[in-house]
Design a protein around this nucleic acid. Structure first.
Lengths: 130, 130, 130, 130
DNA sequence: GTGGTCTAGACCACG
DNA sequence: GTGGTCTAGACCACG
């Protein structure tokens, strides 16, 4: 899986990394139970500090995506059962703003639904489709 | 239009304000050509610093939603033709992440589409529907 | 409120700090809504790094004890409504072990209950008694 | 006696093992003078490293629960007279923190006492009741 | 002035 | 070899 950090983005590095990993989980590039690279390794590969990688891993752990221990390092969890209710709140607020923006910009409901479905399509075969 | 700032949110105040105004534009609470309250007035009403309000107004101006001049203050523009290309990038990246997250959490495409349409519905009558 | 860090303890500094603050909340030395010292200030006072203090504050925030923002710094929340169910699990496992140990050591139920009540007594007037 | 290690717990394995053995002693599953399984055997049964088992045994020895020699292996001691003063310190600090947390969370003294007694009850018949 | 991010590097605990 | 803790210090975002 290819991860690309934009160093001059206003989105923090740890957040960029988190988002790309979550997308990687959705589209099947990362499987349940799969072992993640070590914090040190990934930091080196991406050219970022290991503390920044750790922060991302810890957030993914808190959100239920990842488990970590000193024996096996970090890995994708088999089930994502943590923080669902927090997620519901988040998605509602994010989605409302996103749709408002799209509508104001003149995007028709039909077109947004199409865009929407094409993303869902691109994630076929990832987690959630078994 | 009622605006509600959560002071202990992790979303910056200027961003909360921006989002709510964009939602207000989408659902018709704010019309094209409508004059916005003065920076000083709005800051006072919301109990926030006027630098913060100015920041929001400037961002809305940069994004093409608002025009500002010394005489008339700020008002909603008649056309939103600025910053479209930035918007395209943003919506694509945000939407991809949002859908990835929803899918990983076990939300079915059908249910997300429904949630999605209900938001679109709630914006009936606002800008973009004329 | 006096906080004392043992630098050669096996309990991490951030955990020592957290525990003492939670005890301070229980016994009324820290009140709901009270402002905490800034991260920098407390780090200086205790002779520890500000990142260590930040870690404690962030944990207390995650556990629902503290809210933080850039305007007011950190403060004790008015209600502690986060993470209750996690706490239930934790207390059960900790309590079982603690009691097993006490019983093995020859401590009688009566004496442990007495110790127990004396702690509860010492927290009279703190949060939870209003 | 059944021991269950959670490999993705944040509590170290040697500590999980120690706690469960101490609980087993309290509830009578392990008796005074009883011989413990060999380090190698237990490690194999639990699927953990034998260094880890050795660490637990050594700690239990240091705390006065277990005696070890080359001939008889490890066994539960007849009297637990070592490390009492350490235990006193520990229980006081742990109990204070536990009760503070419970109180802050809104748990009433009555309910905590009830929980407390139910654990004591569940240990009826173990060591400390003869 | 407040907390947040990021880097850098040392040392430690676990297994 | 893995992640965890702690320190140190720079720069930034928010208000």
């Amino acid at each position: 899986m290819i991860i690309k950090i934009e160093f001059d983005s206003e989105i923090p590095i740890y957040e960029q990394l988190k988002r790309q990993m979550i997308i990687g989980i959705a589209n099947g590039e990362m499987k349940r139970g799969e072992r993640l690279p070590s914090i040190r390794q990934l930091g080196e590969d991406l050219g970022i500090n290991l503390h920044t990688v750790r922060k991302t891993y810890n957030i993914l752990k808190d959100e239920g995506y990842v488990s970590m221990d000193r024996r096996n390092g970090a890995e994708i969890r088999e089930v994502f059962d943590v923080g669902i209710e927090d997620f519901e709140k988040l998605i509602n607020s994010d989605l409302e703003y996103l749709i408002a923006n799209a509508k104001n910009r003149g995007m028709k409901e039909k077109d947004l639904l199409k865009l929407f479905s094409s993303y869902y399509e691109s994630f076929k075969g990832g987690i959630g489709d078994e």
